[in-house]
């Protein structure tokens, strides 16, 4: 029988959303549109319209060694062209941001190729070839995995994911890369490392509480779904915890 991934346990809406994001066969809902140039500006790795700097000559111009693995694995567009490896990093508020660091890594591993994610408690970075990165970033920003107020694109000084929100509902950002305008639209005024942009980049309106609760991938007893309400999830985590604890004692059958 062919292996069919289950992605994760749980019966709550949070568990459902986690599975939905991870499952590459499920199309993620497109919520906003951001132009390619805007993405390049926010990332801040190259000037919009400039050529991709390269780390090595294109693969077609190189003498590739005769390697069965290279025949098996097709290179991504970025690898083919010899692009540099660049990154995007997200900080996700615990107050119902639509994706969370671990969740992001799982999702990206299922959906994207040629990536190297790094996961921390409040932020998640993904590295890959530059032109692949721009394509993936667009997907991560335009779909339901992003919220202009609760998700920050932050290359450095990411502090804020566990803090209380500001009065206007924005996640704290020491560098104030994104601001909520009077028109209700969030605009990036700095690139992800905090350098001012020549023009503000609009990323749309913050989603409302109802939408956020329905698309959350984090359990939160105060503003969302309580973890203890998802008994199947608890049962699964307890089982894993119990098994790994017992294994710590290296049980032997006599």
């Amino acid at each position: 029988m062919a292996y069919k991934p289950q992605y994760g346990p749980g019966t709550s809406v949070v568990a459902e959303n986690r599975r939905k994001q991870m499952n590459p066969n499920q199309k993620l809902e497109k919520v906003r549109s951001v132009t390619d140039e805007d993405i390049v500006l926010i990332l801040g790795h190259r000037a919009p319209g400039s050529a991709y700097p390269t780390a090595h000559p294109p693969l077609a111009e190189q003498q590739e060694p005769d390697c069965p693995m290279r025949k098996l694995v097709k290179p991504t567009e970025g690898a083919k062209a010899g692009d540099r490896v660049r990154y995007i990093q997200f900080a996700d508020s615990m107050f119902n941001a639509p994706s969370q660091p671990y969740q992001r890594t799982y999702t990206e591993m299922y959906r994207f190729r040629g990536i190297d994610p790094g996961t921390l408690s409040g932020r998640q970075i993904v590295e890959c070839r530059e032109r692949d990165l721009e394509k993936y970033s667009k997907e991560l920003i335009e779909t339901e995995m992003f919220d202009p107020a609760l998700v920050g694109i932050r290359g450095a000084t990411v502090h804020g994911h566990s803090l209380r929100l500001a009065e206007d509902g924005m996640m704290f950002d020491m560098l104030q890369r994104n601001v909520l305008g009077d028109d209700g639209i969030v605009k990036y005024v700095k690139n992800q490392i905090g350098e001012p942009l020549d023009r503000a980049v609009a990323v749309g309106k913050p989603m409302d509480q109802k939408w956020l609760k329905a698309h959350a991938t984090i359990y939160h007893s105060l503003v969302g779904t309580a973890y203890r309400d998802d008994t199947e999830y608890i049962e699964y985590v307890q089982r894993i915890h119990s098994l790994r604890t017992k294994y710590g004692f290296m049980p032997k059958e006599e």
Binding site: T157, M174, I193, G194
Partner: peptide, 17 residues
């Protein structure tokens, strides 16, 4: 939480904030 006058760390360290 603090709001520093200059970016304290990262590639943009030292630039105004």
């Amino acid at each position: 939480p603090g709001l520093p006058k200059v970016v304290p760390y990262g590639p943009a360290r030292g630039s105004p904030n």
